[in-house]
Write a protein that binds this DNA or RNA. Sequence first.
DNA 1: GAAGATTACTTGGATGTCCTACTATTTGCC
DNA 2: GGCAAATAGTAGGACATCCAAGTAATCTTC
Lengths: 163, 163
Amino acid sequence: MPLPFDPIAEARRNWRSRRWGAVDAMSAATSITRAHQVLLHRIDAALEPHGLNFSRFEALALLHFSRTGALPLGKVGDRLQVHPTSVTNTVDRLEADGLVRRRAHPTDRRTTLAEITGRGRTTVEAAAGALAEVHFGLEGMGRDDLRGVTDALAGLREGAGDF
Amino acid sequence: MPLPFDPIAEARRNWRSRRWGAVDAMSAATSITRAHQVLLHRIDAALEPHGLNFSRFEALALLHFSRTGALPLGKVGDRLQVHPTSVTNTVDRLEADGLVRRRAHPTDRRTTLAEITGRGRTTVEAAAGALAEVHFGLEGMGRDDLRGVTDALAGLREGAGDF
DNA sequence: GAAGATTACTTGGATGTCCTACTATTTGCC
DNA sequence: GGCAAATAGTAGGACATCCAAGTAATCTTC
């Protein structure tokens, strides 16, 4: 059951009346936090029938797109912007499910490659279809809003040193 | 060290060439996910000297704003859009730190109230200042972008049944 | 060419979130 | 009144993420 008011609009009023400052940033940060929560829930629900969550889907898609179907774990972490230990965890699970295989790097024995399997490829294709069907949990938003949000946040990502 | 390209722009190219669909939604969802990660990290870093994380700060601010300084735990969860068990966990920690106190509801014995303490109020005031100083981790974004993002995501939140 | 620094990955531990299931209390309805 | 249904909070468990530290291999530099 919905609240009878927008909680972020209410927070704006409170912040303003206390003169706490950065009201627009507070609103945007809170909106992004909540949007992320809603999105992740919807996306994971769409992926659940395929045995994936969003992290594992992203890793699998990255391998699927790669030239040879295999990448060093470190590269996966760089591209998905997650901690090395999270990559280990993600690949552990993908490997246990038979969607990915660990392989030795041909020349650098420090490096482990994650290689997508045939089952990994069919799974990620089906999962991508499921995500597209639910519009990544963003069903209600129009193209202009989608692009507006993406563009506005690109500056943030760049400022964070992503690219 | 930054990537030599925007990973989301690269993902767009891959999705388009595979005809996976919902490219704009994919870009927006991925942008929001990453933005959330960056934001949360910066916000928690700003709050760390005050012994808070974002969840505990939000709960504390909500109590601080409330008329009597006390709210049922359930109301806190509704307003912050978090699971009841997360509220229990959050209040456990705030109580252990002496920033909040559990009290019995005067008439409904099922209900527990969380009441902010004097130390809770001084802490949340200081923490709010720290957050405003770093613009909630959104330093680089202008007012128009901040408002644009907030407005665009309001529809999503409403569609999710928040209000 | 050998020692020290760097890089790649994993392990173990802390945190935080959610879900399911449970107890206690109150409300609704006949 | 009394009993079923709903509500409030908590405990226990699963899962994902990060950090710190450890091992192994490679690179750098003199």
